[in-house]
Structures are given as structure tokens and as C-alpha cells.
């Protein structure tokens, strides 16, 4: 079990009332598998992902990474060493080139980074489908699909085993979507990573090794 959520509770205070987004939610994930979490808009998918990636903290419950509470690891440390996060809106740094964006987490992480980081970054981009000439462009001069590939390369740059993505194809057309999903499948099946993708697309869910359905703050298996 690489990642485990136990009895997560997350709510918004609505006057006197607590409106629960997640209620006693528990779930676990293994390495080498491609997971999807399916749910309607507003069902709490982003909330769940933000707790799994330590971008936010739950009101109660815990998230275990390799059996260790991420709170104990330290949220910041967990983010820089153990998890790669991909957002729907890419969240790249616009004043940097593609390769510079990939280099950023390499200087933040405490994981071992090969000495010629720049070469590694170019190779990584190339593997994800960004050729060298595009790797030296400022990211706002790239298409949406290309930007999301840069974001994936950035998530992989620190050599983490856990990749979390929040609707990564939400802004892309179908063709592009399939290419990105293929990358995720390859990462899980060929590189042994644990890939968790939040989506509201059935097509994507059907391609995953395991799909969960988030509804009314609870997760169930989706067939």
C-alpha cells in the first residue's frame, strides 16, 4: 500500500451547520496501478485530491504514505519528495521555458537528482513528447496539450512513485486526452508508479485498473 486515506472528514462551515464534502472517507492505492476517481462536478474530487497531495489538511482522519502519516513526514517535505501533482489548469510558470519549469522541482526536492539535471529534463520532456526546440520555448507559447505534457514532466522530474492529477485533460480535446491517458498508463504499467487521476469522464474511468466513485462524501467502487 503506497497511499492510504483513513476516515477523512472535510466540511465547510455553513452558518451553524457543517456541510460535509468528505465524510469518513477511506481508500487505499498500490504501486504499478492506474486509478481513477469519478464524480460529478462539485462532488468533492478536488478536495479529496488536495488532501491526498497535502495541499490542504482534513478536519479529521489521516493520510498514510508508505504506512507513515504525511502529517508526521511534514506536508511540505511530502510534497517535495514523495508526490507529483498535475492540475487541470497546468499551473506552469509563464516566465520560464518548458525545460526551466521541469528544472524547478529538481532544485526543491531532497531526492537524488542526476548531476546533468538539464539533460535529464530534456530527455524527460522528449519522452513525454516535447521535442528540444519546444522545450526551450516559454510555456505560454505552447498549446494546451503541450503545456500539460510539460506539467507531467515536471511531476516526474523528482522521480516520485506517486502521481496525482486533477482532471488533467479537462481543458484538452479528445485526441489530446487519449495521448495523455496513454502516458499515465505507461507510467503505471511500465514504470511501476501509482497514478491517481480525478475525472468526470467515463471513458477514462473505463481505461483505469480501478475506478472509484465519489458521491455524497463517500467512495465506492465503480464498475
Amino acid at each position: 500500500m503506497i497511499l492510504e486515506a483513513k476516515d477523512l472528514n472535510y466540511y465547510y462551515q455553513d452558518g451553524e451547520q457543517r456541510r460535509y464534502i468528505l465524510k469518513d472517507t477511506s481508500v487505499s492505492f498500490e504501486k504499478g496501478k492506474f486509478y481513477t476517481i469519478l464524480g460529478q462536478s462539485g462532488s468533492g474530487k478536488t478536495t479529496l485530491l488536495s488532501l491526498l497531495s497535502a495541499l490542504d489538511s482534513p478536519h479529521s482522519g489521516e493520510v498514510l504514505f508508505n504506512e507513515e502519516d504525511i502529517k508526521k513526514i511534514g506536508y511540505e517535505k511530502y510534497r517535495r519528495n514523495n508526490v507529483g501533482i498535475i492540475f487541470q489548469s497546468y499551473n506552469l510558470i509563464p516566465t520560464f521555458t518548458a525545460v526551466e519549469n521541469v528544472l524547478v522541482p529538481m532544485t526543491i526536492t531532497e531526492n537524488e537528482i542526476p548531476e546533468d539535471a538539464k539533460t535529464v529534463a530534456y530527455n524527460l520532456l522528449d519522452y513525454i513528447g516535447i521535442v528540444k526546440s519546444k522545450a526551450d520555448r516559454f510555456v505560454n507559447k505552447l498549446s494546451g496539450g503541450e503545456q500539460q505534457r510539460v506539467a507531467i514532466a515536471r511531476a516526474l522530474a523528482t522521480n516520485v512513485e506517486l502521481i496525482l492529477a486533477d482532471e488533467p485533460t479537462g481543458n484538452l480535446d479528445e485526441e489530446m486526452e487519449q495521448e495523455i491517458i496513454d502516458i499515465f498508463k505507461k507510467l503505471a504499467h511500465e514504470h511501476g508508479k501509482c497514478v491517481i487521476v480525478v475525472t468526470h469522464s467515463n471513458e477514462i474511468a473505463l481505461q483505469s485498473d480501478q475506478a472509484f466513485h465519489l458521491r455524497k462524501g463517500a467512495l465506492s467502487s465503480y464498475e
Binding site: 511540505e76 501533482i85 499551473n91 522541482p105 526536492t109
Partner: peptide, 14 residues
């Protein structure tokens, strides 16, 4: 602000 958020999400120390 967004850029700073990105660094934080990558685990950069505050």
C-alpha cells in the same frame, strides 16, 4: 500569487 502557490505545491519552503 499563483506562481508562489506553484512553488509551495512543489514543496518549496515558505
Amino acid at each position: 500569487k499563483r506562481e508562489l502557490g506553484i512553488y509551495l505545491s512543489l514543496g518549496e519552503r515558505r
